[in-house]
Computed example of a mutant assay.
Amino acid sequence: MKQTLEEAKREYIEKYVSRNEYASFGAAFEAGAEWHKKQSPWISVEEQLPEENTGVFFTVEWKDSHKGYFTGLYYGNSQWESDHRIFLPNSPLGRITHWMPIPKFNNNNKS
């Protein structure tokens, strides 16, 4: 089960923060959580590439300026594949701009 922001804050404060620092730390914790929530999960290929042979989500910007979103593999050497489409570096048709890892799902939830 996921923790709420309030539960996560309380748990952290109880473990690591003295009672004198509670109010100021609580506000800082919430501000950090809000900042993190606003961050994009997409990673620019100019900043970082996934590990080789990794399944990821990725975006393709086509030469006519529209974008496509795909699930596929990054093979390395700027080569990507999705549903029998291979995207090569320096393609005149489109280029990969961003990627993000496929999230792992928690299988500990028993219904």
Rank of each mutant, 00 (worst) to 15 (best):
G26A: 15
E81N: 09
P89D: 01
V45A: 04
L49I: 06
D64K: 13
Y22Q: 14
L49M: 14
P41F: 08
N20I: 10
V17E: 04
V45N: 03
W62Y: 15
V17Y: 03
N106M: 04
G26H: 04
A8N: 06
P103G: 07
S44C: 07
K104T: 12
I43T: 15
I102T: 03
G72H: 00
Q39L: 14
V56R: 01
F25S: 08
E11M: 09
E81G: 01
E52I: 07
V56M: 04
A8T: 11
E46V: 07
I13M: 11
P89A: 02
Q79G: 01
G26N: 13
E21M: 13
E34D: 14
P92C: 00
S44N: 10
E51T: 08
I86G: 02
Q48E: 15
K110S: 13
A28N: 10
Y16P: 04
H36M: 12
G32M: 08
P50E: 08
S24D: 14
L93V: 03
M100T: 12
E51G: 10
T4K: 00
K67T: 13
P41L: 09
K110P: 00
S82A: 15
G55D: 13
D64F: 14
Y75D: 00
P89E: 04
F25R: 14
R85K: 05
S65L: 15
Y22D: 15
H84M: 07
T59M: 08
G55L: 09
D64P: 05
F87N: 00
E21D: 14
W42H: 09
M1W: 03
E30M: 12
M100L: 05
P92N: 00
T71N: 04
P89Q: 02
T59N: 09
N53V: 05
E52G: 06
H98P: 00
